[in-house]
Design a protein around this nucleic acid. Sequence first.
DNA 1: TATGAATGAGTATTCATTCAT
DNA 2: TATGAATGAATACTCATTCAT
Lengths: 209, 209, 209, 209
Amino acid sequence: MSDHKRGLILDAARVVFERDGLDGASLRAIAAQAGYTPAALYFHFDSKEALYAEVLGQSIAALKTEVDARVGAAATPQARLTAAALGFFDFYAENPRDLDLGFYLFRGGMRPHGLGRERDMALNAALESVLWPIAEAAEALGAELALARLIMADAFAHAVGVLLLLHTKRIRMFGLAPRALMERYVEAEVEKLLASRTANHADAVHANG
Amino acid sequence: MSDHKRGLILDAARVVFERDGLDGASLRAIAAQAGYTPAALYFHFDSKEALYAEVLGQSIAALKTEVDARVGAAATPQARLTAAALGFFDFYAENPRDLDLGFYLFRGGMRPHGLGRERDMALNAALESVLWPIAEAAEALGAELALARLIMADAFAHAVGVLLLLHTKRIRMFGLAPRALMERYVEAEVEKLLASRTANHADAVHANG
Amino acid sequence: MSDHKRGLILDAARVVFERDGLDGASLRAIAAQAGYTPAALYFHFDSKEALYAEVLGQSIAALKTEVDARVGAAATPQARLTAAALGFFDFYAENPRDLDLGFYLFRGGMRPHGLGRERDMALNAALESVLWPIAEAAEALGAELALARLIMADAFAHAVGVLLLLHTKRIRMFGLAPRALMERYVEAEVEKLLASRTANHADAVHANG
Amino acid sequence: MSDHKRGLILDAARVVFERDGLDGASLRAIAAQAGYTPAALYFHFDSKEALYAEVLGQSIAALKTEVDARVGAAATPQARLTAAALGFFDFYAENPRDLDLGFYLFRGGMRPHGLGRERDMALNAALESVLWPIAEAAEALGAELALARLIMADAFAHAVGVLLLLHTKRIRMFGLAPRALMERYVEAEVEKLLASRTANHADAVHANG
DNA sequence: TATGAATGAGTATTCATTCAT
DNA sequence: TATGAATGAATACTCATTCAT
């Protein structure tokens, strides 16, 4: 019962966040969309921030589901790295509103309040857990832990940058498919790792020979 | 006369944007900082957005000055590519408020908006002109025009992504220096171009031989 | 059963009134303190005001208990007058929240209001019954009924004024002990009564002699 | 011009404070009464508290004017003491709304926020300056400074207590004129002072003789 | 006897903007 | 060229109360 209503309100919130942007979304508007009085929302959510945090949390959960599914279906480490990085990219490319949702946090990050320390850390942890398969795969391909983490962060950065490009059309793309940029980036990373492994192997053989 | 006063107001706006953040900056505050009444600003600027657009325009001009200087001092194409990409990155890494200024545009759904079609196109053009040296250098290194543009867009994307990481601290960096990520990316691009040129050259020699 | 629960709610109300002040005390908070839902309180009390009236009634009952005990232990009329006046003063000096409770009635223009005519008259009657010993003692000391009543009202007024001073610290007290003010006042009244009795007696002797 | 409008708003505020009580008076209501939008008031006053503080300040200024006039017209110390104490009493007896205004502060005093430290101290100082003639007269009548101050505080307390009685009708007055209570109190104080002076004089004569 | 859910009216304050002067 | 005065819409959030269950 109550969960059902919460769900309806969350749906309404998503609609309004999409329509008015995150800054423009007022409690009044969300309540109106949900067919409620503003005061009624406070029965289900403690604050506007709590409501937003829940919407965002669901978004990240959906992202994780998608990425994990792709990674689970991949056989080799290089396939897993590719699956995680492109899975992340594809999710947001196909769900631009979830991207907006996520970017709001980064803005919040720019001014330092966020959603309150606890919520903020939980969301960060969720986001990192989505990206971990990239680091794991890199390690499986022979990278040191430090390098593996660097690769994870770098892939995240590249994905986010390309998504921004795609999303805002601020740079003319000259007909480039944005996904091609991401694929090219991932391929290059994988190749570097494989080459490095080969080199190390050769070294080892040489040393032992 | 009028230009001088416009300048004073723009300076005041920058001060307030830095002090209060972009969301927190009100016309009242900017006017007060400039020693004017809010109403007086409307004699010089059509709206708050127009004021913001002009501040942003100046920011991009400053970016261009810095990047062009670095590129001009570079001797080889690969040095120019590196200078342009890292110059872009460094400018925003060192001037985070200018980064805020830029990201602000992506708000409210992150679509180009709010500033009106004309202003928006002018800003886009200015931004592209900053990044063109990357494409030019890539061409000088033997890339087709299409690839050169792709490399330009990709470098932009990577820089933006890493800056976001740096700026928001939302992903734990494990002590990584963000600039290292950008350097690593640029080096890899340059190497790919050089390798490609060598290969092409070898092909050509082979074909001719 | 029902009375027991009423009692629990009234206890909770007292706790919340003390913790949050009278203005800050909301029905929600009282209900939460009592372990109930706000709506549940309406089964036991007609309104927030009714709840307040009952808490106030209990407060006055406690006052009466204390004053009556002191008066009962006093042997002479002058001791009874002193006991009643200082008992009244001490009760509120030691229980400032009860004083708040009483003053709250005077709010909103300080006219008897808000609680309805009936409740108001009952509270007034209860308050008067606390103070009656003063008038009785004055009569026992020879005062006419009219004067006795005047002395009662005057003592009430003085006590309330000093309590206000004590409670709000709005007038610098220069290290004065507030109770000293009240004691001084009561002593003077008693002396006036005794002097008056002596004079009357002398007159009577003279008239008869 | 501006002062005139401020005056109109202050008048409106007084009307609303009277009509709705001080707690019940909202900015909306004051604005409506003044024929303005709520936002317009913020052009003239910084906050609701500032508005109230000004209304109250004017009230205390009027009180001071009245009391000082009476004191100035009095020839002897005992006449000045009486003039100050009864002047204070009469002002509030005749202007019950000013009494409400003043009591609000005491309530604020009960919960410790008041009007902010500065405003609060200024108002306290103004109030004390009204009452100082009482202490001065007492000293002129031979009281030590400590006693003179005690008499001042005590007279204030008595006046306030009787005014409360008068104002709230919470104690049946049995046809008593409240002013009679105050007069009786003041007369007794004056007599005590005179008696004390006589006694001291006699002592002095005796000591010297 | 109690609850979960909802309401409508209310709060002070801020905002970008306008307009007569 | 600039101001003082004003507006209308907006903000998140709280309150006592009601009512179907």
